[in-house]
Design a protein around this nucleic acid. Structure first.
Length: 424
DNA sequence: TCTGGGGTCCTAGGACCC
DNA sequence: TCTGGGGTCCTAGGACCC
């Protein structure tokens, strides 16, 4: 058996954990830049606030019902997540942390067979006691079915957040009514495609011939279907694969046609990506820059393009990454458009201690890599102590106009001494 | 007025190798 | 008339996830 444990309305629950006054109050959390709703407490869901809806579209509901609104506070959510995972790990021999608010537990090598319902209750209770976060638990013989069980646990009040799918016939029956789009691995695109061919539920999909499934949904989809039928195809991945890319992608406050302004944005995004790289001890060997207009202004001419460039030598040195990113930007730029968004992607990541040096440069031409790394270490340390972007590179420009909007940020209750919760 | 950000995997096609 | 067979690597695009 596998269990999938998923935190209920995770970001909203994190905010509530430190605001007892909001215990039964509707709460929503916004995306970066405060644009869309990305988490809703049960009370907010009940008001009809949909997932991913732009904030301005639900402004009326929010004001009428005095919904509490928060910017996303990833420092807080990351730390609470770590604590939840720590508690979960104590329940099983092996755990896969699947996302910030979800984990699979592997119960396949137990010497005894637990009562799954009781175990589920114990997990819920312990996480609640340790962190104040409510979770739902789904048990099943495959990971995909555990996901199904978890969904049922959340959506069926009588189950009280615990669902066990143990018996094949009972599972098959439940799948008959289970909507395709809620299946893990079947997204919007596949769903449309399958519906056109008369397949609407997970049960119907399971009855299609495997060759047909393979053709429609590729090998990944075939695996999903086999898992739905109870045949395990996915194993627990205890150790996360090394990261393959680092992205900084942000919309601007205002659209701009000005190349100089764009250069400051792109330089800033490059710096941010390089910082992420260094905190993970990595260097990149290639980067890509992309640029786009505002896709919501349909009446205006649209432009989207990206360009990738290889670096001569793996690096995490901000000035070098800026130099190449700006080179890409200059090639992408067309002066007749007004731009809303840019993205800097770093990829071809390698550990910083295995750098292959540039064959065509003499040692004197190159500032030794160690020196660059030391310079960046000093820069990072200063910014950590004094606040992000206190020390900048000139290419980033003078003001922080690129900084994401976070107007309603809560405190970092668990990671900063001066933001500890005060109890009177 | 306003509309998120950060990731992974698979496939097909082209270039190239022996 | 006839034109090999077996590979790898890279890229772009499309799907998915949270």
């Amino acid at each position: 058996m596998y269990a999938l444990i998923d935190c209920n309305s995770f970001y909203a629950s994190c905010e509530k954990a430190f605001r007892p006054d909001l215990a039964h109050h509707p709460v929503v959390v916004l995306s970066n830049n405060d644009g869309c709703v990305v988490a809703r407490s049960p009370e907010a869901k009940a008001l009809g606030i949909r997932m991913a809806v732009p904030l301005f579209q639900v402004r009326e509901i929010i004001e009428k019902h005095r919904v509490a609104v928060f910017s996303s506070n990833y420092t807080l959510y990351g730390d609470i997540s770590r604590r939840v995972m720590e508690t979960l790990a104590s329940f099983a021999p092996a755990i896969e942390v699947y996302s910030i608010d979800e984990a699979f537990l592997d119960f396949n090598n137990l010497l005894y067979k637990p009562d799954w319902h009781i175990l589920g209750q114990q997990i819920r209770q312990q996480v609640w006691q340790d962190t104040g976060i409510p979770v739902s638990v789904g048990f099943a013989p495959t990971k995909t079915l555990a996901k199904v069980a978890n969904q049922l646990a959340k959506k069926t009040p009588s189950l009280r957040h615990i669902c066990v799918l143990e018996h094949t016939e009972q599972t098959a029956e439940l799948l008959e009514d289970f909507p395709l789009q809620q299946v893990w691995g079947i997204g919007y695109g596949y769903c449309q495609r399958l519906e056109q061919q008369g397949v609407f539920t997970a049960g119907q999909l399971c009855r299609m011939p495997e060759a047909w499934v393979r053709k429609q949904l590729s090998v990944v989809g075939l695996r999903t279907v086999k898992e739905l039928k109870g045949e395990p195809c996915l194993t627990l991945e205890e150790i996360a694969d090394p990261r393959k890319m680092v992205i900084t992608s942000l919309s601007f406050d205002k659209t701009t046609e000005d190349l100089e302004t764009l250069r400051e944005y792109v330089a800033s995004f490059a710096v941010r990506s390089a910082e992420k790289l260094r905190t993970q001890g990595l260097c990149c060997t290639a980067l890509a820059v992309s640029l786009s207009t505002n896709r919501f202004q349909r009446q205006k001419k649209q432009y989207r393009n990206s360009l990738s460039l290889a670096l001569a030598e793996a690096t995490s040195y901000s000035p070098e990454i800026i130099r190449v990113a700006l080179k890409a930007l200059d090639q992408l730029y067309r002066k007749e458009f007004s731009y809303k968004k840019a993205c800097v992607m770093l990829y071809g990541l390698v550990p910083q201690h295995t750098i292959q040096q540039d064959l065509f440069k003499s040692p004197e031409e190159n500032t030794p890599t160690v020196k660059k790394q030391k310079a960046m270490a000093v820069l990072d340390k200063l910014n950590e102590q004094l606040g992000r972007n206190k020390i900048k590179l000139a290419a980033q420009g003078n003001d922080d106009k690129w900084k994401s909007r976070q107007a309603k940020l809560s405190a970092c209750f668990t990671t900063r001494w001066n933001e500890l919760l005060v109890v009177r």
